[in-house]
């Protein structure tokens, strides 16, 4: 048998219910007039906070060369196993021996955990604030080295979304 504990005895005024109903209606009416929180997406875009984990980028060093040394640390750390690197010896001869010949991330597999950027000894891979990169085919959502470097150019100076040119609807 369940025991019923009465913690609150409604008064006669409460039992009329009508005042409470009117109170409820007033609450929703106040909400009706409040400022709306909707962001009109393609025209307005939410600027994500610092530290948001979106699309990846591959950083460049001061000379504009790719920072990544193809050590495979990110690929090993990746829980989704979505980073695919083909290493090669670098074409430059200033002490940097390896560089990625190809660097692909399958964005459909990626869970945006950010482990790759934590694992990277060179701070070469980073997650940016870009969140709207959907596309129509699976192939287009495998981003390659050039794509990742492109993202770096787009995001290195300031927040991608505060750049007004990105607010217009793109093809």
């Amino acid at each position: 048998m369940a025991t019923i504990i009465k913690s609150y005895e409604p008064t006669f005024w409460d039992k009329l219910y009508i005042p409470a109903l009117v109170q409820g209606l007033l609450v929703t009416f106040k909400h009706l007039l409040r400022k709306k929180v909707t962001i009109q997406y393609p025209e307005e875009k939410l600027i994500p906070p610092e530290g948001y984990r979106g699309l990846h980028r591959l950083n460049k060093d001061a000379n504009g060369r790719i920072k990544c040394v193809a050590c495979d640390m990110c690929s090993a750390a990746c829980p989704a196993d979505c980073i695919d690197i083909i290493p090669g010896s670098s074409p430059w001869d200033d002490g940097k021996e390896r560089y990625p010949v190809s660097f692909e991330i399958d964005l459909l597999k990626c869970i945006f955990c950010g482990f790759c950027e934590m694992a990277c000894p060179e701070e070469a891979i980073e997650l940016t604030e870009i969140y709207d990169f959907s596309d129509y085919t699976r192939e287009k959502l495998i981003i390659d080295k050039d794509g990742l470097l492109d993202v770096y150019d787009k995001t290195k100076d300031k927040n991608y979304y505060s750049n007004s040119q990105n607010l217009t609807i793109k093809e």
Binding site: T28, H31, L32, R34, K35, K36, V37, T38, Q40
Partner: peptide, 10 residues
């Protein structure tokens, strides 16, 4: 529309 307004949407 009104349901949206009451819930703070558009």
């Amino acid at each position: 529309r009104i349901s949206a307004f009451i819930q703070g949407r558009l």
